[in-house]
Design a protein around this nucleic acid. Structure first.
Lengths: 209, 209, 209, 209
DNA sequence: CATGAATGAGCCTTCATTCAT
DNA sequence: CATGAATGAAGGCTCATTCAT
């Protein structure tokens, strides 16, 4: 009977853990939007709570502190942002198609998800000062690198080219272009963004010559 | 005699303006260090003052507000950081020499001035959310781009190569490498930094093939 | 059941709103006393909090800013101070009784509530410089005028006299006497106050001759 | 010789005292304007200095502290404001003329010197909280009372009427009208001011019936 | 579990005052 | 004498965090 009771307790406990985690995730997602809007330093827990359907007390119930909450939010970002181009890679049959679809999506998400992207850069930057997020940031950065590498190496494959630089360099180059385009996009300088868009195919070709 | 008196007053006034500006600069430099240590969001005026030999009231005496102070601090950064490689360019007689000295200085300042560099990235990031510093940031970013371009175009000249990408792409590529090296340097991952160092000459060669 | 649950929520919500408002009022009253003691310009939120049983953070929890708090405090004052003589008017059966009870209460509240009255004059004065409170001040001033008019017109009615001046002039005259009496009361000049008291009945008679 | 030297010293000392006082007066007058614009509580010594041709250090040289300065400024106000109607009284030959000229000047200075008048009320109000200015305020108030009394008693003389109320009541009535007119003037309610102007002659007649 | 009342450290800023020059 | 550099107390306000209900 004890055994039965125990397993019942276990089931309940497990279910509660699930519920707990589900709620954490829910709160983290809600957090992500406010965070993206205001940036890490300017976002208060009250603000987050007000933009959600929860009280700010509940944030402290589910998260140890602000860092814990933001860390969880970053992980939610990760889920979305490290596989973005995988479909493009999967369905591409020619190098040109891959390149063009990649470029299109690249600048599409730039405009669509600008706030979310700047949050990513914000948090990656925090990790220069604060170890808290560093491990998560490095992991996500690695996955983004992998994602980009999948695109460019597939491009090389399709185009018969060879990659002369490391995944790291490929990543920082494309990410650098993205970052700069974002900066000018937010600054309202559409022409600079357009120049970068125009130049991107050539850069890809250069990397995988 | 009035004239004499006037010119005396003028001399005094000029000297005082000089003194005022000198003190402003002094405080801006002190600010820069605290800022570099803690990051923009975590730096308070009191902290800055405590790291100087003055009271925090002095900061308000010399600067209209925090924004004014930080802007001035950024300008101090600029003075140092947008001409760093000019001597290297000036004295280089061969492409190899230019490239090697550039790489050496690149990783030297990375290690030496890591806090200052991360501050730069921090402020550039702030400008994604807050237009306060955006104009200054864009201007400095432009100057950094020019600086990098001077290096790479001189390299192409010496090596007889041609540059197939724009200054913007050259900049974001090298700056992306720098940023990533900084992130790993601060994360204690010396091996990643070493890889990037090892790869940098090839990247330069690729850009100016 | 949803309905039941909703109405339960509503009841809770209502109760909380009540509690919230009750605490606001409580704090506004506490504010009023500190304000009355020190005057508007010399009263800080920290001081107000210290004279209450709460921390100063609470003031910011219940009030948007200092202006909001002081406005609420003024409204508490209003509730007390614009109907003060209404009972006297209601129960008076003869002009003499009305006049005498009015005079008695006039100098009674002068002595009893001197700090509160000087606060009123202080705030009315602020509104000469700062329009923040001007609307509230003008409204309260209007109500005070009405209150005084009710007294004097009832006096005229009972005495068979007629009022030859406007409510505004009646008000400024009696309020002027009050203000001066207050000034001398606080200055310790009891004799001047006594003179004014002695003369007040005649002034009322003159106004409603 | 000692005596001669002494008397020389005395002469110099006297002259320096004169110069000292002259400078005090000069600074106090300059102060008055800034004070009138902003009100007592909102006026900083820096602001005063900036609106004058002096440095703020000099204010501390000539005045012990802010109160000392403001007290001196009030005394400058006094010089102007307690004899304003004396010429009107002196030249009046009929009651109507006196009354009309008084009313004209009354509302003229109201509009012309509104900032100065509100400063007076501000300082008179400070004295309800702060003994510092009380003696000066009471003295000035007494002189203003005398000034008003000279007008009204002369009016009674010319019109053959008798004054049935004390100087104090006459003063507070007319001053009350002035204060209210000022409040509405600054509040932009010209109609209320016009009503009061229209009614003022009747009030004077009533007081000196 | 969830709420929101309450706390108090800390931030930016203002300002009277002191004092070396 | 006069200046203005420097100080530090104090003010309004924000916010992460705690905790009774």
């Amino acid at each position: 009977m004890t055994q039965v009771a125990d397993s019942k307790h276990e089931r309940i406990a497990r279910r509660q853990v699930d519920k707990f985690d589900a709620r954490r995730t829910e709160l983290a997602v809600a957090t992500l939007h406010t965070l993206a809007e205001l940036g890490y330093a300017r976002t208060s827990l009250r603000e987050i709570a007000q933009n959600s359907e929860f009280s700010h007390g509940v944030l402290h119930y589910y998260f140890a502190d602000k860092r814990d909450l933001v860390t969880e939010a970053v992980r939610q970002y990760e889920a979305v942002c490290v596989t973005r181009y995988d479909d493009v890679v999967a369905r591409a049959t020619t190098a040109e198609q891959l390149r063009d679809e990649f470029v299109a999506m690249f600048f599409d998400t730039l405009a669509q998800d600008a706030p979310l992207h700047r949050l990513w850069y914000d948090l990656r930057n925090q990790s220069l000062f604060d170890e808290t997020f560093r491990a998560d940031v490095l992991e996500i950065d690695g996955r983004r690198e992998d994602m980009v590498w999948r695109v460019v190496s597939r491009y090389a494959e399709l185009s018969g080219g060879t990659l002369s630089v490391s995944p790291a360099v490929v990543y920082v180059t494309l990410d650098g272009i993205f970052h700069r385009a974002l900066l000018h996009h937010l600054g309202g300088q559409a022409d600079t963004v357009a120049s970068l868009r125009h130049e991107l195919p050539g850069v890809i070709a250069l990397l995988a010559a």
